[in-house]
Design a protein around this nucleic acid. Structure first.
Lengths: 167, 167
DNA sequence: AAGGACATGTAACTAGTTACATGATTTG
DNA sequence: CAAATCATGTAACTAGTTACATGTCCTT
């Protein structure tokens, strides 16, 4: 089966424990977001699709008057996730508008280019700080792979911030 | 006017000199590709759109029997490009399937995780090497901003490759 | 003669975002 | 009581990829 990487994000989080679509979104925003984002507009329809394929089981579990749906990964879903983990990765993409503007900053004055570089540096500093805030939670949850991914993100953004300060 | 960043890529390259859609694609693949890619399926329709908006002028310029179209940026197109360059950048996105797999490599053995890390490191080494090949061309064309963007790409990929070797 | 590079273009598809609609509960 | 948070979902849209179709010219 060939699912979208975002489907595996969902399967991956459900593999740790069952949760609602809303919770998946929060979790993504506090973890994989810096290298793989996902919006509600993707998560909810994808959950349905996965349920249709038998990879996820969804059951209603209202919280008081609050309508809620809890999803859990099935045995087939776990198999699917393992299969994906063993296949080689393919996608690596970056869309960096700062670099694009700097690249075409020919006619603009050098003040504009300098401001751009400063702004890029600040962006990476802010992102690194944001990731540092998450760090204690990830340490607490005790998954070494997740921690090493996060630390890479922190280190990389700090590296980038410094790179452009020196420039 | 609010165009897609890819439209500005086109305007930016046409600003340096007029060229065909095919040439734009080749140029992108040899320069902005590592931080902003574009396919024919985007470039050709976008050229039409830009022509419709009066930002680009396209004229037929067959090369022997080879049908060809040369596009040049208009004065309005240059204004539009400058306007974009002066607005702050917004988009910064990464989709990294290697990090995603590592992040969810809980149940897989540690051998799988190690292979993943190695493969990520190799990927960045190869990309850095690819960018190094381009470097002389960029040096030759004498645009300092383009060179600094390229060198950042090289440095960053080398940094990433080394980061994961040590891990 | 064949294969690769030059050259343009579209159709079908996949992915993903944004904005909106709806409504309950919790917190200040 | 107002605002934030919890919670689900969809419609319309934007962006972008892939695969295909077509044909020329150049190199081996």
């Amino acid at each position: 089966m060939e699912l979208s990487p975002t489907a595996y994000v969902i399967l991956g989080f459900l593999d740790a424990r069952p949760r609602s679509g809303y919770e998946i979104k929060q979790t993504v925003d506090n973890s994989t977001r810096f290298f793989w984002a996902a919006s509600y507009g993707q998560i909810y329809p994808e959950l349905r699709r996965l349920a249709g394929l038998g990879l996820v089981e969804s059951k209603r579990d209202d919280d008081g008057g609050r309508r809620r749906q809890i999803h859990r990964v099935t045995a087939a879903g776990r198999r699917e996730l393992r299969g994906w983990l063993q296949r080689p990765a393919e996608t690596f993409e970056t869309r960096d508008e700062w670099l694009l503007k700097l690249f075409f900053a020919r006619s603009t004055g050098r003040a504009t280019a300098a401001a751009l570089v400063r702004s890029k540096s600040e962006f990476h500093t802010a992102l690194a700080a944001r990731l540092r805030e998450i760090e204690p939670k990830v340490v607490a949850n005790g998954n070494p792979h997740q921690l090493s991914v996060l630390r890479y993100g922190i280190a990389m953004n700090e590296w980038s911030a410094e790179y452009w300060i020196g420039a």
